[in-house]
Computed example of a mutant assay.
Amino acid sequence: KQGRVIDLILPIFVLIIGTISMMIYTGAQSLTTDGQPFSILGAFENTVVGTSLVVGGLAALITATLCALSSKQISLKEYVSAYALGIKSMFGAILVLFFAWTINTIVSDMHTGKYLSSLVSGSIAIGFLPVMLFILSAVMAFSTGTSWGTFGIMLPIAASIAVNADPALLLPCLSAVMAGAVCGDHCSPISDTTILSSTGASCNHIDHVTTQLPYAMLVATSSAVGYLVVGFTQSGWLGFLATGVVMIGLILLFKKRPTKT
């Protein structure tokens, strides 16, 4: 009831500063090992993200603990109980990421990307690759309710397929995976973000899902056309233009006319 703003801001500040500092530090170590001169861009390119996130997260956790206990508004027993509930709420997402990382290792060892790229090269036009990855990632994220898990599974596969099929499509393919995963996660009724959105707005969960679907599908359809254009033209500007034209056309098509009374 007598909370302090600093108790909210300070842990977040420590998280950001700690993570970025460790990213620069681990990146600098990698540059030194390779005998390269230090630069900020080079450090970020060669950083160890996992270690940086762990150190930043632990620093923020320790800071939050000290802030909570120093205020003397909650007891140590209450804090430990809340800490256990936090672990429980995040366990599902951590488990999904753990299995995604495991699958990534298996996919890499089996050279799945090379195999799939050989199938794509021999059966369909390479230009369809971005839009196919977009749709597949959206379906996967919708089914699993997690965009991060889809990132972990699909990004290595998409990168390997693009490099072996047509390196010029590497960035469009990675973009398609991330956009499709976020789209599917946004629409999924089992996604944590969807559940939290309906809970925070105090509305029926299924009502929230069904009312946001038309807007998401409008953007997804327009984006799919844009990725199709990018795949065949390899022009980002033409892809943006096609997306905008299709979106305007769909808005005009489905726009409800006011009813006369």
Rank of each mutant, 00 (worst) to 15 (best):
K1N: 08
K1S: 12
G3L: 08
R4D: 01
D7W: 09
I9K: 10
I9V: 15
P11A: 02
L15Y: 00
I17A: 14
I17N: 03
G18A: 11
T19F: 14
M22H: 13
M22W: 15
M23R: 06
Y25W: 14
G27H: 00
G35C: 00
P37G: 01
F38C: 06
F38K: 09
I40C: 11
I40R: 11
L41I: 08
E45C: 00
G50K: 00
G50E: 13
G50L: 09
G50M: 02
V54W: 15
L58N: 01
L58P: 08
C67R: 06
C67I: 08
S70I: 04
K72F: 00
Q73G: 04
L76H: 12
K77Y: 07
Y79V: 02
Y79H: 07
V80Q: 06
A82T: 03
A82K: 11
Y83Q: 10
A84W: 15
K88P: 08
S89P: 07
S89C: 02
F91C: 12
F91T: 15
G92W: 03
A100M: 05
W101D: 15
N104H: 12
T105G: 15
S108M: 09
M110H: 07
T112W: 14
K114H: 06
K114Y: 04
K114G: 02
S118W: 06
L119E: 04
L119Q: 11
G122Y: 12
I126H: 12
G127D: 09
G127C: 03
L129Q: 04
P130E: 15
P130C: 11
P130F: 00
I135H: 04
I135Q: 12
S137D: 13
V139H: 12
M140G: 10
M140A: 11
G145M: 05
G149A: 08
T150V: 05
F151L: 04
G152N: 13
I153S: 00
L155D: 10
P156N: 09
P156Y: 14
A158I: 03
A159D: 09
S160P: 07
V163F: 15
D166A: 11
P172V: 05
L174A: 04
L174Y: 08
S175E: 02
A176P: 15
V177I: 06
A179H: 04
S188P: 10
S191A: 11
T193D: 00
L196W: 01
G200V: 05
S202A: 12
C203T: 14
C203A: 05
T210Q: 08
Q212Y: 00
P214A: 09
M217Y: 00
L218T: 06
V219R: 04
A220W: 01
T221D: 04
A224I: 03
A224M: 12
G226N: 12
G226P: 13
G226L: 09
L228H: 02
V230L: 07
V230S: 13
G231E: 14
F232Q: 01
Q234W: 08
Q234N: 13
F240R: 00
T243H: 04
V246N: 01
M247I: 13
M247N: 12
M247V: 06
G249S: 14
L250W: 01
I251Y: 09
L253G: 03
R257K: 13
P258G: 01
P258T: 03
T261V: 06
T261Y: 06
